[in-house]
Amino acid sequence: EADPRLIESLSQMLSMGFSDEGGWLTRLLQTKNYDIGAALDTIQY
């Protein structure tokens, strides 16, 4: 079963217009401990 923190973070990022095609966003959020800010910083640079 998916981590509730992942579901919450992923749904927030999907609502911002990101896609999780191929699961890349799920993996990114997992490596950033479900921190949306850290994930966005990684995507920006």
Rank of each mutant, 00 (worst) to 15 (best):
Q44F: 15
A2F: 13
W24T: 04
G37Q: 15
I43E: 02
N33W: 06
E8F: 12
L14S: 07
N33I: 05
I36W: 08
G23T: 01
M16A: 05
S15G: 15
Y45H: 14
D3N: 11
Y34C: 09
N33R: 08
W24E: 06
S9K: 06
T31G: 12
W24K: 04
M16V: 04
D35Q: 06
L29W: 02
T26K: 05
L25H: 00
S9M: 09
Y45V: 10
I36P: 03
F18S: 00
Y34G: 06
S9V: 12
D41L: 15
I7H: 09
E1G: 13
I43W: 05
L25Y: 00
F18Q: 01
Y34A: 04
A2P: 13
K32G: 06
S15N: 12
L28V: 06
S19C: 10
E21S: 09
S9L: 06
D3Q: 04
G37K: 15
R5D: 05
Q44W: 15
R5Y: 07
E8H: 13
P4I: 11
A39T: 12
L25I: 07
G37D: 14
D20R: 00
D20L: 03
E21M: 09
R5L: 11
Q12T: 13
K32Q: 10
D3Y: 05
F18C: 06
D41R: 13
T26D: 04
E1F: 13
T42W: 15
Y45F: 14
S9A: 13
M16D: 03
D41A: 15
L25F: 01
R27L: 14
Q12F: 13
L10A: 00
D41P: 03
Q44P: 08
W24M: 05
I36M: 06
L29H: 03
L40A: 02
Q12A: 14
Y34P: 00
T31Y: 13
T26R: 07
L14Y: 10
D3F: 05
G17W: 03
G37A: 14
E1Y: 13
P4M: 11
T31R: 14
Q44H: 14
L25V: 06
E8T: 11
E21T: 07
E21N: 12
I43N: 03
Y34R: 00
L10G: 00
E21P: 04
Q30V: 15
T26G: 06
G22K: 08
T31K: 13
D20C: 06
G17Q: 01
R5C: 10
R5G: 05
D3V: 03
Q30K: 13
E8I: 13
Y45C: 14
T31Q: 15
A39C: 08
L28H: 02
I43T: 02
L6Q: 04
A39F: 04
N33Y: 07
T31I: 13
E21H: 08
G37I: 14
P4G: 10
K32H: 11
G37S: 15
I43P: 02
Q12V: 15
L28Y: 03
G17Y: 01
S19G: 10
G23V: 01
L40E: 01
L6M: 09
G22A: 07
I36K: 03
S9D: 00
G23H: 07
R27K: 13
Y45P: 06
E1H: 12
S15E: 14
Q12G: 05
N33L: 11
I43R: 03
Y34S: 04
S19M: 08
M16C: 05
Q30G: 09
Q30R: 10
M16S: 04
T26M: 05
I7G: 10
S15P: 02
L6G: 03
D20S: 02
I36R: 02
I7P: 05
S19F: 08
S11M: 10
A38V: 09
G22D: 14
D3A: 05
M16R: 06
T26P: 01
A2W: 14
R27A: 13
S15C: 09
S15H: 10
G22F: 09
L10I: 09
T26W: 01
Q30E: 14
S9F: 11
S15V: 11
E21C: 10
P4K: 13
K32T: 15
S15T: 07
N33H: 05
E21V: 10
W24V: 06
S11A: 15
Q12C: 12
D3L: 07
P4T: 11
N33G: 12
Y45M: 15
L10P: 00
L10C: 03
S19Q: 11
L40G: 02
L6V: 05
Q44V: 12
G17E: 02
I43G: 01
I7L: 13
Q44M: 14
D35H: 08
L28P: 02
T31H: 08
G37N: 15
T42P: 01
L10Y: 05
G37M: 15
Q30L: 12
K32D: 02
Q12W: 10
L10W: 03
Y45T: 11
D3I: 06
